[in-house]
Amino acid sequence: MRLLRAGITLAGFLLIWGLITAILGLPKFLLPSPLIVAEALLTHASLIADNAMTTAIEILVGLILGVLFGMVSALLISAYRPVKQWVFPLLIASQAIPVFAIAPLLVLWLGYGMAPKIVMSLLIIYFPVTVGFLDGLNRTEPVWLNLAGLLQQSGRTGRFRKLVNLYLYIKIPFALPSLASGIRVAAAIAPIGAVVGEWVGASSGLGYLMLHANARVQTDLMFASLLVLTAMALLIYYLIDALLLRALPWLSTHNNNTTQ
């Protein structure tokens, strides 16, 4: 049902696009019709696929690293007050710097390969993941903390071990839904980082391909790349969404539980 609806929306969109180009008679370097774009997609299939592969790797590696760094940061900030007091303001301030502004610097430092694009994705992703997870960790309900504290009172283990166990069995599981929201946002914006990185300086990738197609007025190729990029971003988002839902099965039945 959901797929059908998406299909109808897509078909409607293509139809309106096609009609606009037909009625206005726009030249194909301004707005190519869907048919011309489809043709470009087919003739340049292997070129687009090669470049899409580069961008996909950049996005995925950026996502994985960003999520990892974000989680570790959130845990440290939540568990150690000094880290929170000293590092958290820095983290907020870092978000005031637009990624576009540091993209040339990253290329200067890390070269024209994948590294600066991965770092770029990572920088964009890091913040929503950290803040999402941290929010979840700080919001464990007090009744739970009270109960856990009481349960730990009779234990013989040291304070550090108890803290680790508290995070492992109570705080982290309770924070997983917030982390999942953070990761969803991250998955949606990760492609921005990679593409911006490619615009500034690259030798392959969809962003690079689009920039060059644009310079050579190959508008059809540009649109074809844009379509692939969009499809890829959507695929990554829904894949991660499905993975997260599977990983947190108790949430789906949580709300419709009214039996007494």
Binding site: Q152, G155, T157, K162
Partner: peptide, 18 residues
């Protein structure tokens, strides 16, 4: 614990104390 089975819910004290 909403994610844990009945059995694991009973063991939470043990686990928290290591």
């Amino acid at each position: 614990l909403p994610w844990a089975s009945v059995f694991d819910n009973l063991l939470i004290g043990n686990r928290l104390r290591g």
